[in-house]
C-alpha cells in the first residue's frame, strides 16, 4: 500500500476497512494456531485442527486491517537480530538497575525526534517495540505521515548522548529493514554511505520553553 492509500484508509470513517486476503492473514492464522497448541500444551493434529477452525472464526468475525508484509524475509539476519536483541535486553535491564540505584532523582532525560527512513507501518511498529525494550528509550508520540518517532530517552546528559540515541534507533531500523524490509528500502539502505549521520531530523532550538 502506498502512503497515500494508507492515509486515506486510516481516515476512512465509514467503518469499512480494506478486507485482508487469506494469504495476507496466513501468518496471523499460524500464530493463533501455535498459541492454541501452546496453551493446551498439546500439539496433536486434532487439537491443532480445532485451533485452526477457531482462529478462522476469530479472523472472520473480528476483522482487522491487513498487515502488509514485504514478502522478503532473511532468516540469517533474523537470527543475528534476535541474538543482538536478547543481548541488548540484558544490557538495558542492568543499565536501568544501575541508574535507579546510583543516580536516582538526578537522572536527566530528553524527548527527541527521530525521522525514520521507512514508510511501512509494520517496520515502524517493530522499531518502536524493539527500542522500548533495548537501552534507553521508549516512544512517546508517533507521526505516521512523516514516519517520525518522538522518543523519551533516559540518561541524556549532553547533546552528544541524544545524537548517539538517534543513531542507535537508525541502526535498529537498518537491522529490521535488512531482515524484512521491501527490496526498495533495502536498496536505499545499501546505497547510503557508511558511518554518516543519516537522515536525522534536526529541529532548531528556538521556540524551546
Amino acid at each position: 500500500m502506498s502512503p497515500v492509500e494508507r492515509l486515506s484508509d486510516a481516515k476512512n470513517e465509514s467503518g469499512q476497512r480494506q478486507r485482508a486476503t487469506l494469504r495476507q492473514e496466513l501468518p496471523l492464522l499460524l500464530w493463533m494456531v501455535l498459541v492454541w497448541g501452546a496453551l493446551w500444551q498439546d500439539f496433536s493434529p486434532g487439537n491443532l485442527v480445532f485451533g485452526l477452525i477457531l482462529s478462522l472464526i476469530v479472523v472472520n468475525v473480528f476483522q482487522l486491517p491487513p498487515v502488509i508484509l514485504s514478502g522478503r524475509f532473511n532468516i540469517f539476519r533474523a537470527v543475528t537480530f534476535l541474538g543482538r536483541f536478547l543481548w541488548d535486553v540484558v544490557l538495558a535491564s542492568f543499565e536501568v538497575m544501575y541508574l535507579a540505584i546510583f543516580r536516582g532523582p538526578k537522572t536527566k532525560s530528553a524527548v527527541i525526534a527521530v525521522c525514520l527512513r521507512t514508510e511501512s507501518d509494520l517496520i515502524m511498529t517493530g522499531v518502536g517495540h524493539v527500542l522500548t525494550l533495548v537501552p534507553g528509550s521508549y516512544v512517546v508520540e508517533v507521526d505516521r505521515r512523516s514516519s517520525t518517532l518522538y522518543l523519551h530517552v533516559l540518561n541524556v546528559n549532553a547533546p552528544e548522548d541524544a545524537e548517539q540515541a538517534r543513531q542507535d534507533v537508525m541502526d535498529i531500523e537498518a537491522r529490521l529493514i535488512r531482515m524484512m524490509g521491501s527490496k526498495e528500502e533495502l536498496e536505499a539502505l545499501n546505497a547510503e554511505p557508511k558511518h554518516t549521520k543519516s537522515k536525522t531530523k534536526k529541529i532548531s532550538e528556538e521556540g524551546k520553553p
Binding site: V111, Y138, V140, V156, P159, I203, K208
Partner: peptide, 28 residues
C-alpha cells in the same frame, strides 16, 4: 502499555521540565 501511559503522561503534562535536557516534541 509504556507508549500509551507515556503518551497520556506527556499530553496531560505529568512531566518535570527540569529533568528534560531537550524536548523536540514541544517545539513541534
Amino acid at each position: 502499555s509504556a507508549h500509551m501511559v507515556g503518551r497520556a503522561g506527556y499530553r496531560t503534562r505529568h512531566l518535570k521540565r527540569e529533568t528534560l535536557l531537550t524536548d523536540e516534541l514541544a517545539t513541534v
